[in-house]
Amino acid sequence: MLQLDGVSKVYRVGAFGGTGLTAVRDVSFTVRAGEVVSLIGESGSGKSTIGKMILRLIGVTSGSITFDGTDIARLDGDSLRAYYRSVQGVFQDPFSSYNPVFKVDHIFDLLRGTYFRDAGDADWRRKVEESLESVMLDPAQILHKYPHQLSGGQLQRLLVARALLLDTRFLVADEIISMLDASTRIDVLNLLGDLKGRGLGILFITHDLSLGNYISEKTVILSRGRIVEMGATGRVYGNPLHPYTRALMGSVPQLHRKWSEVEADLAAKGANVAGRCIYHAQHGTDGGPVAPDGVATGLVEAEADHFVGCFRPYLEGAC
């Protein structure tokens, strides 16, 4: 459905774009229909940049993103509007996603102006109300309010409802629950699970490993703009291979296991890979594609449906 192929993003910084800042380097993965892929990384890993490139909000420096076989870089005008009919996004900060001078209905009015010009008032109202009900919101309590009169959880669900109003088949969910309270965040997360059941492909961008594990079929671990590990969620979590993934797993606070227990467990599991760069062990000294700073950006298949990248710079001397 959606495919990223060697995607890189370099930001120009300084006067007249003198120097470049590489935010994303040589990233490739696919998302299928009815599948949630979680893209996990810390701040500055480039995860949101990837989401924005998929949504065509920023351009790709090199590589390509294809949706149903079409390179999205070529879209413009009508074809871009058609793309947005199928591909939508929801972002981290629910309050910043609404224009504060308008009532929340504005996000629906915008869609109507582009995609539903022919819809009659009654028709349109019914459509909006249906989509609100499908995300378990009561239209009477939500519509005609200003954003600051609603809670973050309500606002995020409203954004999902907006996406459902179109024939959305692919959703980019960028940290959509990190600003919500515990008692409401799980409902929004479950909503994503339900959408997956309806056949949507979802890219779930998060920094929280436990959330990614809960919802996704496939996990992509991103660090400093490149993929360090990727595969079926069960494999990545059950047998983390890359030192960065292992450090992440060791640091994420868990509810019923202390850090020390997790660490001991990881050490036991990792005994087989200790100190050895799996990527270069398979590839030999000729390491495939290399980024300007000398780190190999490719991946090797360490086991079925489980890929891992070079261990540098997290484990010096391993390769």
């Binding site: 515990a182 008692s183 799980i186 479950n190 699970g193 436990s210 594990n213 979590y237 797993m249």
Partner: peptide
């Protein structure tokens, strides 16, 4: 309810659906 609404490493949506308050 608060504690049981928190997803943990190991809990999967497909296997055990958590619920909020």
């Amino acid at each position: 309810l608060l504690i049981s609404s928190l997803p943990e490493v190991g809990v999967r949506f497909d296997e055990r659906r958590l619920s909020g308050i």
